[in-house]
Each structure stands twice: as structure tokens, then as C-alpha cells.
Amino acid sequence: MQKRKGKTSVLFVTLCVILLLYTLFMLSMLAWSLTQSVKSAHEFWKSVISFPQTITFEHFSNVMKYNYVRITASNGSQYDIGLWGQAINTILFAGVGACVSVVVPFVTAYVCAKYKFFYSKIIYAIVLITMVLPIVGAYPSELTILRTLGIYDQIWGNWIQKANPLGMYFLVFFAYSKGLSDTYIEAARIDGASELGILLKIIFPLSIKVLLTVFCIIFVANWNDYQTVLLYLPSHPTLAVGIYKLSRGTISTANLSTTPAYLAGSAILTVPVVILFIIFRNVMMGNISVGGIKE
């Protein structure tokens, strides 16, 4: 990679100092959170900044054992969803939800880019219009419609809701599909492949990089999103909802109402996505642009 050169200037020195302070703040906060989460509550209150004298994972095990979310069913009965139930909901909400959020706009964009029908132009125009029209506060209407359709508070209903063909990722996929060579498609047609076969056996494998990039971005966003779940899936709490409820003190178990327990909960929520980020760092940070992907 070409290295840009330049003189040291007041601007760069100032920016470097600000960014160093930012980095120091971020890293010290993460380090503090991790070290305090393995201290006993007693030791924590003796000193909130010292290193742990004895390392304990009691807060982690308490969060795993007791951090349940209480659900009130429509008939008034109550039941609890613990950490493993929340983890399954997270996989269904974040994982399957991300798949749906990738596949639907991709197929829509591919078809619009490669099949020259007039309707493709209409879809493209609709994408641009909906992106510049700021709609505020459609939650009540959306909830009413979800209830009317019988898909409110259903995971599969949320997948349908997430299968939004439009938005920024349509533009990413559209630009990408436009750039795909038609040679493979024509060759497959000559060999007698169906259009669906071409899409599944040629286009999807060819596009795996851009699909993976967008999947990772949406998966992390879904993993971290607790507000959508609170609003549309109240009976299907995810890990993010569990940790949010923990931080609000709605879980009454005494041994969870301490700062180290909150920090342990944060670590449980954070570690999986940080691992994912470490594995796919270059994919997530380097590839995406509205013009497709940067090679």
C-alpha cells in the first residue's frame, strides 16, 4: 500500500492528541470494565479502581443463572426466559433476521439490474424516494398492522418485517450486480440452466464476498438491537434485552444489582461480537461502499 507522506503540522499534532485521548479513554474503560467484573462485590466497594486481588467469575455465573426476563402471557400467566432462551432468540432474531435482510434486497437488486423491464426502473426510483423521505413515528401504525396480520410478537413475523427490499443495501447490491459480467449468465443459459439455477448456482457463489460483508454488518446491528425486540417481540427477549433489563435493575435478585454484575453482563453481550469483529475485521471495515465493494 502506498504510504502518504507529509510534514508534521499543528493540525495533525492536535488531531493526534485528541485521538490518543479518545483511545486512552476507550481502552481504559474496556480494561476497567473487564477487571472490575471479575472482582467480588465486597472488594469492588473497597476500591473501585484497584486490580482484583482474587479473580472470581461469580458475577458471570450469576448473570448466566439469574438474569431472566419475566414475560406475561396474554392469559395473564407469567414465565421466565433465562440466558440460554435469550441466546436462542438472539440467534433467530440476529442470525436469521440478517440472512433475510441480505437475501431479499440482493435478489431484488440483482433482478432489477440484470432484467431490463420497466418495473425495474420504478423500483429503483422508489428506493431513492423512500431514502430521502424522512418518516417519523410510524410505530403505532406498524404495531396495529402487525397485530391485524397476526404477526405481532412472532419471530417469523419479524423476519417478514425485516425482509425490506429497499434501502441503502439495495443500492450497494444494485451497483454490484450491474458490475457483474454477463458472460457467465449467457454461458449458463446456453447450457440450458434455468434463471433460478443461474441465481442459486452462479450469482450467489460469485457474490459471496459482498453478501458476507453486508451480513456481518446487519448481524452485529441486530445482535446489539434491543429496542426493536422490546417493541415488536416482547415475548422473545434477546441477550441485548436481558442486559438492558439487568442495567435497569428490573431483575430483583440482589446479587445481580451490583456494578460488577452489570459489567459482567456487558462482557457476556460484547465478547461474541468482538470475536466476530476480530475474525471479519477486514470484511466489515474495508469492503462496503454505495458503489458496491472495494476490491
Binding site: 474503560m29 474496556l30 476497567w32 470494565s33 472490575q36 452485529v220 445482535w223 446489539n224 434491543y226 441485548a240 442486559i243 438492558y244 442495567s247 456494578t259 452489570y262 459489567l263 453482563g265 456487558s266 462482557a267 453481550l269 460484547t270 461480537v273 468482538v274 469483529f277
Partner: peptide, 13 residues
């Protein structure tokens, strides 16, 4: 990358 639910806890305390 880090969830706002986790980040706000860490930032707050």
C-alpha cells in the same frame, strides 16, 4: 460493534 446496552453500562459506571 459493542451494543449500546453494554456500552452505556460501561460508560456510565
Amino acid at each position: 460493534i459493542i451494543s449500546s446496552a453494554a456500552m452505556t453500562i460501561m460508560f456510565r459506571y
